[in-house]
Amino acid sequence: MIDTVGLVFVGFGLFFDLAGCLGLVRLPDVYNRLQASTKCVTLGTCSILFGTFLITGINGAGIKALLCIVFVALTSPVAAHAIARASHRGGVKLWKGTVVDRYAEDQEGEA
């Protein structure tokens, strides 16, 4: 029974991983791609790891999978934030359909 639940979690994770990678291919600029891929791939991988925890049960490997969930969930948004800020400061253009860019306006005001 609990194995089935774990396999269902792994299946959800696979779906979200695939959707995130599809977003990586389809969306137009770095910032949009970061949004889609970070969210979907983080939840997908966390879901796969939780399924692993359910299937293996409470032993060494299961607890390590839980710790790995914590690590991935903490580090992945920080990495996305760092890359987004670096690419904005490094001068990567936003997509041409972008509505508003307060960040560039404020930086020009400072300089």
């Binding site: 389809r26 600029d29 359909g97 509505v99 960040y103």
Partner: peptide, 10 residues
């Protein structure tokens, strides 16, 4: 249709 309307807000 890829319904996005991106922007950076404060």
């Amino acid at each position: 249709a890829l319904p996005i309307r991106p922007g950076i807000v404060k």
